[in-house]
Each structure stands twice: as structure tokens, then as C-alpha cells.
């Protein structure tokens, strides 16, 4: 969903750039609540994984493809503020070195693929995990939030384009086309995000930010009883 240069007019691009700078500045201050010595390396690993996975375009039919955005995946694994930083680094590297997403559209892309999926996704995740508890809730919450995050990001693009798009297109035409494709892409987002979070939950649940407190500490305490001689 990388917006290139020239899709949006200059005032809109300047405005989205300012919003993105502000959001990243807030995230830089807030992320220290999510990051400590042990979890800081996770942010690097998550951003690297998102960069890699964004290269993997999957077909969604009729000669169209999609790729993971990763905002929800990052938010669940490292926390929402750190996730915004991870997404911003990925988008910055993509636009500066890989010519993927315009330089003047960097702020737009940070809003569409960082701010919106992270914020909306985190909200949906919180609602789902309040209903479905434990490890299952984290996995289902991730997939649901990922599914919703992609069409909402597409909706964000339609909104920005209505405001400052450089071509004349009827709102309803753009809306139905964008939402239609991005619901399909959202299914891929849900599958990839759900699988990735489930995998980390299986090997190191302590490294899943959103599972802190959401998943009861299990096996370790049971083991300590066995070492004292009490069996099952």
C-alpha cells in the first residue's frame, strides 16, 4: 500500500508529514515504557521480519496482489508505541533505499501503514482479548485486529485522497475499489500475523508484549513442585 510521490498534493503531503513527525516524537518518548534491556532486541527483530515479509506479495485474485503491513503484528509483539517506531524505520528504509513509497509521501505512508493499523489494531485487540482470555485470546485478537486494520488503512487512504488527491475520482468509486481489494488483503494479513504471534507464543511467550498479564504464567511453577518431590 505504499503511496508514491504525486498521488497527493503538496499541502496534504506536508500535513501528513507533520502529523507523522509528531506521532513518531510521541512514540520515542512513550516507547521506553515498553522496552527494557531484554525486549529492545525484539524491536529490531520484529522490524526486520516485517521488512522481509513485506517483500512477499501474495496473490489475492484477478491479477492483484497484497503484502503484509505488519502494524498489528508489531504492536502485539513489542507494544503499540514501539510498533510505530518499527514501522517508521521500515518505511523510511524502503523509501530512501528501495524507492518503495515516495519521499514526499513518507508521512502519508507512516500514517497509513503505521499509525492507523497500530492504533485501530490495538483497540480491536484489546476488545477481543477482553472477551477471549489467555493464549487463545492473544492469537484470535491478533488475527481479528490484523483483518480489520488493512481495510481501515485503505479507508484512511480514501479519506486523504478525497482531501488532497491529484486526480478527480468519485468518492464511491474509489471507496468500493479500495475496500474490496483490501478486505481480501486483510485476510492474508490476519493469517500471517496470527501464525507469527502464535509461533512466538509457543516458544517464548514472555517475549510477546501483549501476552504480559494476558496469559497466566503456567509451566514454570508446576515444575518447581516436582523438584520438591510432589508428583502430579
Amino acid at each position: 500500500m505504499h503511496v508514491p510521490d504525486g498521488f497527493l498534493d503538496a499541502p496534504t503531503s506536508i500535513a501528513t508529514g507533520a502529523v507523522a513527525v509528531g506521532a513518531v516524537a510521541v512514540a520515542l518518548r512513550k516507547a521506553n515504557k515498553e522496552l527494557d534491556e531484554r525486549t529492545a532486541p525484539m524491536a529490531g527483530l520484529v522490524a526486520a521480519f516485517i521488512f522481509a515479509t513485506q517483500m512477499l506479495q501474495f496473490p489475492v485474485g484477478a491479477g492483484t496482489s497484497g503484502h503484509l503491513i505488519g502494524g498489528v503484528l508489531a504492536a502485539v509483539l513489542v507494544g503499540p508505541w514501539t510498533a510505530l517506531l518499527c514501522m517508521s524505520v521500515v518505511l523510511l528504509v524502503q523509501s530512501l533505499l528501495f524507492a518503495d513509497g515516495g519521499l514526499t509521501a513518507l508521512g502519508t505512508n507512516i500514517i497509513l501503514m503505521g499509525l492507523i493499523p497500530v492504533a485501530v489494531g490495538w483497540l480491536v485487540f484489546k476488545v477481543v482479548t477482553a472477551i477471549v482470555r489467555q493464549r487463545k485470546g492473544v492469537a484470535i485478537g491478533t488475527a481479528t485486529a490484523a483483518l480489520v486494520s488493512v481495510p481501515v488503512a485503505a479507508l484512511g487512504f480514501v479519506g486523504l485522497y478525497e482531501f488532497g488527491g491529484t486526480a478527480n475520482i468519485a468518492l464511491s468509486t474509489l471507496l468500493s475499489a479500495m475496500i474490496g481489494w483490501h478486505v481480501l488483503i486483510g485476510v492474508g494479513e490476519a493469517v500471517i500475523s496470527g501464525l507469527a504471534v502464535s509461533s512466538v507464543l509457543a516458544v517464548r511467550p514472555d517475549l510477546v508484549y501483549a501476552a504480559r498479564g494476558a496469559v497466566a504464567p503456567p509451566e514454570l511453577q508446576i515444575r518447581s513442585t516436582r523438584s520438591e518431590g510432589a508428583s502430579s
Binding site: 520515542l28 516507547a31 521506553n32 515504557k33 522496552l35 527494557d36 534491556e37 525486549t39 529492545a40 532486541p41 525484539m42 524491536a43 529490531g44 527483530l45 520484529v46 522490524a47 526486520a48 516485517i50 521488512f51 522481509a52 517483500m55 513489542v78 514501539t82 517506531l85 518499527c86 524505520v89 521500515v90 523510511l92 528504509v93 524502503q94 533505499l97 528501495f98
Partner: peptide
Amino acid sequence: GVSIVLVLAGGVAYAVRR
């Protein structure tokens, strides 16, 4: 790309960590 993103994002996270 993976290497550059790893170093940059890891570096930012390490700099702002608690």
C-alpha cells in the same frame, strides 16, 4: 534491507529503552 532495518530499529529501541 533486513540487515539495515535490524540495526536501525534495534538501535532506536536500544537508545530509548528503560
